[in-house]
Design a protein around this nucleic acid. Structure first.
Length: 271
DNA sequence: AAGAGACCCTGGATGC
DNA sequence: TGCATCCAGGGTCTCT
């Protein structure tokens, strides 16, 4: 399940392949994968490729193609035009002969074609690695929210890019209980959490992301951050810090992993 | 504002 | 073995 680090790795890998490429055709195989508008990307050249949260943005002269991989989306760029069949949902052909295939077993991923990228991105907040995402900004977001910190961090309207896995990891590293109301966090806790978010995301990018089931880089490689996970997917296994079994509960219908020993104190202190 | 739940989906794991 | 059921979860939506 790609989150910010995986999407960042993919974005970086796509740039040398696709920047400057001119689009010859855009084909959908599963009807919902491509969300079209009146805007045609045909014969347009990709000027730059950027990322915002979990979105990959191909900037065209007067519009954009915006990709969200959701749970199982994968992108593979090939030089020749023979197609792979399994789970292929859409593909883009370029004038050069290159082809970008979009695979997605669960069909949740989307490719938006639009003259106005803001339409697609309007409900996403500041990117978690944006240079303007500062502790003060983070504090402003959290102090207005009574919701549980995990819910607040999951909501892309607040901060874009964090997902279920990295949030569990960041909260563990910060020793914050996931059910703590956001506005009950102390200044110290907010500062620690801010630093851990940055540290863990950057570290995960360095390790090419986390491969749990489907995620692959554009070159077909795997990430290695799964080897460094402290709590995610470790239900009932001993905490690396205190040996207590890792707990799993559901928040926002998402599996939430934490250490009742390391992360319970902050909850008690704050309530 | 925010919680609960449905929905979109398929593959893999589990249970009988 | 084979069938049914559950679970994984990002995001959007409706209802309360």
């Amino acid at each position: 399940m790609p989150e910010l680090p995986e999407v960042e790795v993919i974005t970086r890998e796509l740039r040398p392949h696709l920047v400057g490429e001119k689009i010859r055709d855009l084909k959908k195989i599963w009807h919902k994968t491509i969300v079209e508008s009146e805007y045609s990307p045909l014969n347009k050249r990709i000027q730059t490729i950027t990322r915002h949260g979990k979105y990959i943005i191909f900037h065209l002269p007067d519009g954009a193609i915006i990709i969200h991989l959701r749970m199982t989306g994968q992108i593979i760029v090939k030089d020749q035009s023979n197609l792979d069949a399994k789970h292929l949902r859409a593909y883009i052909e370029f004038k050069s002969g290159k082809i970008m295939q979009f695979f997605d077993s669960r069909k949740f991923g989307r490719i938006y074609v639009t003259s106005n990228p803001q339409d697609v991105l309007k409900n996403t907040g500041i990117d978690a690695l944006d240079a303007n995402f500062l502790p003060k900004v983070f504090t402003n977001i959290l102090t207005k929210k009574k919701r549980q910190i995990k819910s607040v961090l999951l909501d892309q309207k607040n901060i874009a890019g964090l997902g279920n896995i990295y949030i569990d990891e960041c909260l563990f590293a910060s020793r914050i209980h996931p059910l703590t109301p956001a506005n009950r966090l102390s200044d110290d806790q907010i500062n620690i959490l801010f630093k851990e978010i940055n540290k863990i995301l950057v570290n995960a990018i360095d390790r090419m992301g986390t491969t749990i089931s489907d995620y692959k880089t554009v070159g077909g490689g795997f990430g290695s951050f799964q080897n460094y996970l402290q709590v995610y997917g470790r239900t009932d296994q001993p905490c690396f810090v205190c040996n207590s079994p890792i707990s799993k509960i559901r928040i926002n219908n998402r599996g939430t992993h934490f250490c009742t020993n390391c992360q319970v104190e902050s909850l008690n202190n704050e309530l």
